[in-house]
Simulated scan of single mutants.
Amino acid sequence: MKLKNHPIKAGVSNRHVHLSQEHLEILFGEGYELTPIKDLGQPGQYAAKEKVILVGPKGAIEGVRVLGPVRKATQVEISRTDAFKLGVKPPIKDSGDHEGSVGLTLVGPKGTVVLEKGVILAKRHVHMTPEDAEKLGVKDKQLVMVYCEGNGERKTIFDDVLVRVSSSYALEFHVDVDEANAAMLNNNDNVYIIEEL
């Protein structure tokens, strides 16, 4: 197996919510603004102080972090394990693609939002700049394989990893908690795009 000689930091994504301004105000109050507490790996993205409750047909998950800034449409990203607990069957989707996705109820301190769609299992992907893409010899929307050492105990190859290229991105490989746990992968671990098997 030959790896591209350019390490990529892993970012493990726990369950979280991106809110539209409309839904933010329903959940937290009119004119409400998010309170940033920690910058994330992607420029301009941050974890907010605010949390909501996810409620599905079979159960609820409390204390789910809201990420900022606000978006045009509300999106809920959960793991398959979360989906079992909530009793929903979200599809694997690229962020922002809500076609065929499912809904649930969001509960905040001031109100409730019933989503018809927007709940997804995020497709694993690599963010990168055009310069990174050129170094790695890949293109936007290309599917690649990514190799993970797994602390030497659970070496894993992730297939069907979507490449996302933009000058506003930073180089980072994103997987959800279920995928990371299966591969013994932690935040900031190095992974590599496979050049050839």
Results as ranks from 00 to 15, higher is better:
M1W: 07
H6R: 15
P7V: 12
G11N: 08
R15Y: 12
Q21S: 12
Q21A: 08
E22R: 11
H23A: 01
L24Q: 04
E25I: 11
E25A: 12
I26S: 04
G31K: 13
K38V: 02
K38A: 11
K38T: 03
G41S: 15
L54R: 00
V64Q: 03
R65N: 12
V66F: 06
V70N: 15
R71S: 04
K72H: 09
K72Y: 10
V76H: 07
V76T: 00
S79H: 04
F84N: 02
F84G: 03
K85W: 01
K89Y: 13
I92M: 15
I92H: 00
E99K: 06
K110E: 09
G111N: 02
V113Q: 06
K123L: 14
H125Y: 13
V126K: 00
T129M: 06
P130C: 01
P130F: 09
K135T: 12
K139Q: 06
D140M: 03
K141T: 11
Q142Y: 03
Q142T: 00
Q142F: 01
M145P: 05
V146P: 07
N151R: 10
K155G: 02
K155F: 11
T156L: 12
T156A: 10
R164C: 06
R164M: 05
S166W: 13
V177R: 15
V177F: 14
E179H: 02
A183W: 13
N186G: 14
N190G: 07
Y192L: 00
